[in-house]
Simulated scan of single mutants.
Amino acid sequence: MAIRAVMFDFSGTLFRLEQDETWLSDLTDGDGEPLDIEAQTELMRRMTAPSGTVVELDEEYQHAWDNRDLDPDLHRKIYLEVLRKSGLSRPEQAEALYRRLVDPGEWTPYPDTAAALKGVAAGGAKVGVLSNIAFDIRPAFGLHGLDQHVDEFVLSYEEGAIKPDPAIFGILLDRLGVAPGEALMIGDSEEADGGARELGCAFALVDPAPTDVRVDGLLTVLREHGVL
């Protein structure tokens, strides 16, 4: 069956929160020592990990982690705790870095994001963005003139469901007006995004590598699935 719709994940798929040295250069550990490059890199990984637990948590904070993409308050609570447990003992530093995470303007599109979205739309297929997220990512697309190529956004905190729950894939499919067998899901998480296969969608995995490393991952999988 021909692909009539492509559903894209956001973080690590269409956009990436890139490590910016200016954000991290003044961060210090509990002893007041600057974080080394390995610690900085690990911080960014923990801020954007799509699944799994990145630090050891008690029952209260594990609940917040498991439900972070359903509730903005829980999202803020757990990420400030993750940053604290990752060595940022000064609350003002954790708050400043968290604000970067939830600012759509800080997210960088992959080099082929524009071409991928435009190519799918130009070919007559519907475009959807489906994200486990606790803040509005639409402005990130608007800043780069990409919102005009997206037919529907489905965000977990607005819908009360998170990937890999089949329900959230079903919401987007219904809004796009396509059957599961006519849709391709593209994402960076086998666990979360791969849940689309339970409904009968095709699935393609991309590497959430830095944007200067993964330059044509989206176009490659779209070609492999005959969309472009």
Score class of each variant (00 low, 15 high):
Ala134Ser: 12
Asp207Tyr: 03
Arg214Glu: 10
His75Phe: 14
Asp29Ser: 12
Ala49Thr: 13
Arg138Pro: 11
Glu92Ser: 15
Arg68Gly: 08
Glu106Ile: 06
Trp65Met: 06
Arg45His: 15
Asp103Tyr: 09
His75Val: 07
Ser89Gly: 11
Leu130Lys: 01
Pro210Asn: 14
Trp107Ile: 02
Ala140Trp: 05
Lys118Ser: 10
Gly124Met: 11
Gly105Ala: 14
Thr41Met: 12
Val215Asn: 10
Glu81Val: 02
Gln93Tyr: 08
Glu224Tyr: 09
Glu81Asn: 10
Arg90Ala: 15
Glu159Tyr: 04
Asp151Val: 05
Asp73Ile: 12
Ala121Ile: 07
Ala94Met: 10
Asp20Arg: 15
Asp26Val: 08
Leu172Gly: 02
Gly128Ala: 05
Gly119Gln: 00
Val178Lys: 00
Ala116Lys: 01
Lys163Ser: 04
Ile133Tyr: 04
Pro34Arg: 02
Gly217Arg: 04
Leu14Val: 12
Asp20Val: 14
Trp107Lys: 01
Ala196Pro: 00
Val82Met: 09
Asp112Tyr: 12
Gly181Glu: 15
Leu88Arg: 08
Tyr98Gly: 10
Asp71Gly: 01
Ile3Ala: 03
Asn67Cys: 07
Pro109Ala: 03
Arg76Trp: 07
Leu218Arg: 02
Gly177Asn: 11
Ala96Val: 07
Ala179Gln: 14
Val6Phe: 05
Val150Asn: 05
Ile78Asn: 01
Pro34His: 05
Val178Asn: 07
Val55Asp: 02
Asp69Glu: 15
Arg46Lys: 15
Ala192Lys: 12
Phe169Glu: 01
Leu143Arg: 15
Ser89Gln: 13
Glu158Ile: 02
Gln40Ala: 13
Tyr157Glu: 02
His75Asn: 14
Asp193Lys: 04
Glu60Gly: 07
Gly195Pro: 01
Pro50Ile: 10
Arg4Lys: 15
Leu205Val: 11
Thr113His: 03
Thr22Met: 14
Ala140Met: 04
Thr211Trp: 05
Glu152His: 13
Arg175His: 09
Asp29Phe: 10
Pro111Gly: 03
Ala114Arg: 14
Leu143Ser: 13
Gly195Thr: 01
Trp23Met: 09
Val154Cys: 03
Leu80Met: 12
Glu21Val: 06
Glu95Thr: 12
Val120Phe: 03
Leu184Ala: 09
Met47Thr: 08
Asp103Lys: 08
Arg45Leu: 09
Pro166Val: 07
Ile37Leu: 14
Ile133Leu: 11
Ala115Cys: 09
Asp112Asn: 12
Leu219Met: 12
Thr220Cys: 02
Thr22Cys: 09
Gly119Tyr: 00
Met7Val: 12
Lys77Gly: 01
Leu97Met: 12
Val6Gln: 05
Val154Gly: 04
Pro34Val: 07
Asp193Ser: 08
Glu182Met: 05
Glu18Ala: 15
Ser131Thr: 01
Ala202Met: 10
Val102Arg: 11
Val82Tyr: 06
Phe15Tyr: 15
Asn132Ala: 04
Asp136Ile: 03
Phe8Gln: 02
Gly30Pro: 12
Met7Gly: 09
Gly30Asn: 06
Pro208Cys: 08
Thr41Trp: 12
Ala161Asp: 06
Val120Pro: 05
Ser86Leu: 10
Arg90Glu: 14
Pro139His: 06
Gly200Asn: 02
Gly145Thr: 07
Val154Ala: 00
Ser25Tyr: 06
Ala167Arg: 13
Ile171Tyr: 06
